[in-house]
Amino acid sequence: MMKKSYCLGIESTADDFSVGISNFDGKILANVISAYIPEKGGIHPREAARHHAEVADKVLEEAFKKAKIKLKEISIIAFSQGPGLGPCLRTGATVARALAAYLNVPLVGVNHCVAHIEIGKLTTGAADPLTLYVSGGNTIVSAFDSGRYRVFGETLDIALGNCLDVFAREAGLSQRAGLPFGAMVEKIAGKGKKLIPLPYTVKGMDVSLSGLLTATVNLLKQSTYSLEDLCYSLQETAFSMVTEITERALTHTEKKEVLLTGGVAANKRLQSMIKYIAEEHDANFCVAPTQFSIDNGAMIAWTGILAYRHGVTTPVEKSFVRLKWRLEEVAIPWIK
């Protein structure tokens, strides 16, 4: 008897708790995301983890409703094993272990960064891209070579999304459901005209964003410039830096596709810059659709399938979360 197989993926590295369901052909049947929005300040890991624990059953229920399948039709449980915030990761891992034990199906621990790249490839059709992955926690320029996703460029300190978020909070903006800080900064930046000189720090194929953030926040506090001009200048400077290192990595690796993903990928200005350099070097520009570029369970489910098909499973005793699991540490047996 033919049995349909599905993988359920759980994502909980930071402020989002998400459940995705994918079949073995990469058809995404569900991708339900619940975001934790702090009342004040940044993500408090314990508070975010509490949110994840509270919404887990509802998110799971909704995912099954969307996918129109039953719990017992799931044949693999995948979860985001790292990198990320400890309490958040542990909450997702606990749900995953419980489900896998209950259903008596294999557990697959997935690297969050690998998953971002894989879902980006699946949803855009990119085969072997140079990826710029920019989010609240990561700023990475990566491409596949000899069994691994190699990291060619990255941030030396804070991530691009983090830089924009902290600035937005310092400016007194408040996050609302469906309108993240990055989108607010983008909207305000659209009204800015004056380019304020800010530190532009490219080091080899890496960038440093902490000095830029400090300088912009200091100017904000002096109230010499309008918020519009500050947002505009911050975006232009930071995006120019990451675009420059992406172009460097592109000429270095000579890949023929550029994939933009991660939460900041939704920014239209950044998209236009990356598109420009891709075209400049005859490479195809791809950007992951927003629901698959932000943190999502579908990417974990799909990567779980890729790994499982190549014999990768994670026994419970090895399913401890890995807070600092770097992208290039992961063997990628599914790419020849």
Binding site: L195, E236, S240, E244, M273
Partner: peptide, 12 residues
């Protein structure tokens, strides 16, 4: 580099 503002680009 046309992706970045020309003033910034000229400076760099």
């Amino acid at each position: 580099k046309k992706y970045r503002p020309s003033r910034l680009d000229n400076q760099i």
